[in-house]
Design a protein around this nucleic acid. Structure first.
Lengths: 223, 223
DNA sequence: AGGCGATTCAAACGCATGATTGAATCGCGC
DNA sequence: GCGCGATTCAATCATGCGTTTGAATCGCCT
């Protein structure tokens, strides 16, 4: 049976009459500012201006909304990371990789996607929350989305900092992630609450400087 | 009116018949493994083997239990940090401070308190959650507990790495906290789930190596 | 022995949550 | 203009939540 035309409601030409996307955006905003488990369905649908039942109609459940949100937000960020890493590896032709570009390929997409987000720069906090709040429903999704990135970048760092033993490399990659996530979450220990946020590129450069030094530190305890 | 004797129930000689501490320990365990907002009072009291009403009798509310838990756990850790920093500053007699000991004074108490915890090494995750889940009730408590530590260590790092401008120092201190918190949370990106956790001192040394290099990196963007 | 304050307990409260229902509404294709 | 699937909506469900209550229990002190 041929799909005679498209579905109803504009026939998939307008994929949704906005409801689905408005739900995703409202959910992202609230998840970021209130936390995953502290955000109720009613708060989301109220913020989106739609009925409560819309969530279950379009996504099936609150959990599946969250999974869909992760797929839409995190996956593209990781694809950009991998694309940039591809370019670096292609340019190096099997030789050692330059550390700073690899670092930037990992760090910059995270900040870029944060600020690209429709007006509000909450994606960083949402992103950070994924690490902090253990939603078992997300475990497999996150693993699936981050597995490639983790593996590819681990190997890239191994080529960029070849003097490191494997276990030390794993740990330093872990520390890098901690630095990035904590910074995306936007908590500054010493910042006066009145200061306005600094431009992304400045923060990125500081992160790169710090982590590049940490990653390339000698492995012997020379101090 | 003279406090004729002590209170009832052993007259404060046994401060509580265990209930209060059992609640705190059960709460800490569950907060750490399940998250702050996903842990119910009933789960806590069930785990502790006491009645639900005991929480309100001893603490007043779930939130106040959390605050009390923070005071009991985090405050001593920070006191040890400050004591160690005092010793370092006393030994330096106004001169520049050695970076690595200052770093260790900040990092080691966190890991030590984690493993000291009655059998379970969950304090790290609990500690990490305090950063990740924004309980507005904790905001003032956490600020009060961490304010001194943040200020004192910021100044110490300024003396240990004197070539850094103030804003760069603030950021690097932020990155250090991110590294520590993320590591305390215990998520390893590359670790097989079957591996058993490495000894604390080994992890501490790796953290110190990484952050010492990051903190003392040159501030110019010299690749 | 008896009184009394500290503590425990089972039961219930009101409320917010995630989920579900079934009818109403919409808008295209026929 | 009619039918039909896609979509919205108000209303409702059962459940679990934090909290409160009031009576029972415990153990020291006089």
């Amino acid at each position: 049976m041929i799909e005679s035309r498209f579905g109803p409601n504009g026939g998939n030409r307008l994929p949704q009459p906005d409801t689905k996307n408005r739900l995703l955006e409202a959910a992202e905003r609230l998840f970021a500012s209130e936390g995953l488990s502290r955000t109720s369905l009613r708060a989301i649908t109220c913020e989106a201006g739609v009925n409560v039942a819309a969530v279950h109609y379009h996504f099936g459940s609150k959990d599946e909304l969250l999974v869909e949100l992760v797929r839409r937000r995190i996956a593209p960020m990781n694809e950009e990371r991998l694309a940039r890493l591809d370019a670096i590896e292609r340019a190096s032709e099997g030789g050692p990789l330059p550390l700073e570009p690899v670092l930037r390929a990992f760090v910059e997409p995270a900040f870029r996607f944060r600020s690209e987000m429709s007006g509000h720069e909450q994606l960083g906090r949402f992103f950070g929350r994924l690490y902090a709040e253990p939603e078992e429903i997300l475990e497999s999704t996150l693993r699936e989305i981050f597995e490639d990135v983790a593996k590819r970048f681990r190997d890239a760092f191994a080529r960029a900092v070849p003097h490191l033993p494997d276990d030390e490399l794993d740990w330093r990659f872990h520390f890098l992630v901690g630095t990035v996530v904590h910074t995306l979450m936007g908590r500054r220990e010493m910042q006066a609450p009145t200061d306005d946020p600094p431009p992304d590129q400045e923060v990125i450069d500081r992160v790169i400087r710090f982590t590049a030094a940490g990653l390339s530190a000698p492995v012997e305890m020379g101090q």
